[in-house]
Design a protein around this nucleic acid. Sequence first.
DNA 1: TATGAATGAGGGTTCATTCAT
DNA 2: CATGAATGAACCCTCATTCAT
Lengths: 231, 231, 231, 231
Amino acid sequence: MTVGYIITIGYISLWVNGMTIAERKEREKNLRREMILKSAKKIIATSGVEEMSMNQLAEATELNKATLYLYFASKDDLIDAIVYEGLKILEKNFQESDMRSKTGLEKVLNHINAIFAFYRENPVYFYTFNHQERRKASLRMETPFAKEGNKIAARIFEKTAAALRSGIKQGSIRKDVDINAFLILMYAQIYGVMHTIYTKEDVYRDVLSLESATIERSTIEFLQYYLEVIN
Amino acid sequence: MTVGYIITIGYISLWVNGMTIAERKEREKNLRREMILKSAKKIIATSGVEEMSMNQLAEATELNKATLYLYFASKDDLIDAIVYEGLKILEKNFQESDMRSKTGLEKVLNHINAIFAFYRENPVYFYTFNHQERRKASLRMETPFAKEGNKIAARIFEKTAAALRSGIKQGSIRKDVDINAFLILMYAQIYGVMHTIYTKEDVYRDVLSLESATIERSTIEFLQYYLEVIN
Amino acid sequence: MTVGYIITIGYISLWVNGMTIAERKEREKNLRREMILKSAKKIIATSGVEEMSMNQLAEATELNKATLYLYFASKDDLIDAIVYEGLKILEKNFQESDMRSKTGLEKVLNHINAIFAFYRENPVYFYTFNHQERRKASLRMETPFAKEGNKIAARIFEKTAAALRSGIKQGSIRKDVDINAFLILMYAQIYGVMHTIYTKEDVYRDVLSLESATIERSTIEFLQYYLEVIN
Amino acid sequence: MTVGYIITIGYISLWVNGMTIAERKEREKNLRREMILKSAKKIIATSGVEEMSMNQLAEATELNKATLYLYFASKDDLIDAIVYEGLKILEKNFQESDMRSKTGLEKVLNHINAIFAFYRENPVYFYTFNHQERRKASLRMETPFAKEGNKIAARIFEKTAAALRSGIKQGSIRKDVDINAFLILMYAQIYGVMHTIYTKEDVYRDVLSLESATIERSTIEFLQYYLEVIN
DNA sequence: TATGAATGAGGGTTCATTCAT
DNA sequence: CATGAATGAACCCTCATTCAT
């Protein structure tokens, strides 16, 4: 049961148990936005990013096509929003991961783990990241979301950089590792592995009896080998 | 002047100076096919794979749109043909590379180099490989070219595998390298680095002062570090 | 400080210092109406009549789109209101012009001048007059504003007619001028010249070195030539 | 009955009674083009230029919407084609008119007549001319048709200029007429009169008992009065 | 009074593909 | 073998307008 009473002053009515009408509307709007995003992600998960059309999305959400445009300025904007969402989740995962890690090396390895886990749970984000990266390379348009997304991406990148630096300082990571080069290679490695898993998982399982979990583990060991101090 | 004479038996006519009419026609057909592919690659190089339309291609080749379909069953088939072509080139490059390499380690590193060089000279193949891989993952349609392409890909893959095996045997590569795992990681690494270069080259150059050539070199050193025997 | 007191009888409250609440509300409503019209004209001035959308207008006025419909029954009605406004201004200009003119001929010529000046200062009205005239020809819908506007147009027309009649009577205008025919031709002439100026000004300036001011002057001389008594 | 026989040489077949297959195809293509234009003009005649949609046109022609784009690059191009067509007709009418005229004055007056007759028979051209003039003023895009159309327009304009010059020379037109100024005013006058007729014909007929034929006649007399030499 | 949200209808354009010839 | 012509389906997006609140 919800307890509350109403105060009305002029045009403004408050439902006094913590939420004004304006707030409720705001919340409802966000819910609908998220519902649209959810539908979009579902479609992308099954048919791919470029295959998702606003027509399809309108049908899936049972909304009018024009309504979608009340929540997102364009199809591109919508995809940027998904990307943004994904990046936010990933950043949070990194934060949590850092709290569970002690040495710099541990942090880095847990970052890799976090990314794999993230993509494993939400393949959609891999598709959309990939799509927008390729798209943006040619257009370089900066929608609000894209801009904000870039900032998060930079922060994520920097988190791993910091872990590398602290690892080197503490001695858990080799001194002669070039941080920038390693960062690029590491993210490229992960990207390539994910691409491999998404496009050839079945082949590798059938031909080489390699599960994707195994491939992920190998990736981590591989990168770890490069970082580790040799005694 | 071409010397020759014609024998006609029923419907079949031979132009007897080394080449039958059927052969000549076959050759002409191939020439036109290649001309079409060349145009397609040019378009892809400038506008991307999904942006290349059959309309555009018809205009560029000065052929009728319907004619294109005499040479390729579908747009997809045409792209598969480009992929196939690329794989053939790459295989040849591998063969030449192997001839210049002595130890197993050298062979592997030269393979990597060969791939980078290949993509550097023909970005088109990266776009098309990427495109078809992502596409095929969901459709898994097996056009003749796709099938044949897979065989070449397997042979390429196997070449590196052989190099790894011989390197281990000879002692130029660490004994405890898991060949399959490394192969997957290596190709994923290269793929990821290429993606990085194509989508973020400018960013890395501007922000980190890293040229793509440098990144490629780092990749090789990175992989080499993993393979090398430590004294 | 505003002195006043309130009388309430049933639902009706009066704020007795000269203006009833109803009156104040009426006035506020008019202010907002005019604000909307002002924004609409600004948009039309830059993008044209058919390009002005209710969306744009809502944004420009910082009002909700639905709110616009509280002040104007439809987009068409809104444009009719602008037309009406323009006609009112023009009528006033005619009145002022008449006060500065002596002979009938002078009055007519000053009318022409007044129209040119009016359009020069407010091109928006030319666009909207033109737009609605063409539109109404096929639909002939009679919104309240359109009706009222027609009345003003008739009065304006009549003012020039009166000037012509008095000119003939006084002897400043040729006796054998057919008033109705001349009126139509004169308004058509002005309309055509305005259209020419708006659509081809640059051409005429570049090719014939004719400024629009010159064209306007020629128009007046041209019409004057027809009216003038020859000695 | 059509007499003819066929000669086949290689790929080329001739239907020997005056027309090759290629020619016939060409002719058929032109017929279809004209059929489309005819439908477009019909729609424009009833609903106006901006109201004509490609959807509507596809329905009217019983062609697929995409098919329309085989004949016209865009809606704009289609309208330009109508404009071009109209200008060609008008130019021809001018030529015929010139042949029937003796003095320069006669030529000019017959030009005016020719324009009125032209618009009377094909109101569509007035709508489209008007539409494209207003449109082009802001975009100034130069489709092939628009370019060619401009050339015809210039020739038409020049024809009247020549008539004026010769009239002045011969003495049928007043010496102190400024040719450029008059040309602009004359075309503006005609344009304005046509606009008046199309948008207010019924009003003038009902209120002033003025038929459009009468208005046209007045226009000619009006312009004639300005040109004529006074004795 | 004012508004946020929603919508049906339609805009022009492009796509890969397939006929009959 | 080659082509001109055609097409259905889909694309993203925008419009003026109307609800319930």
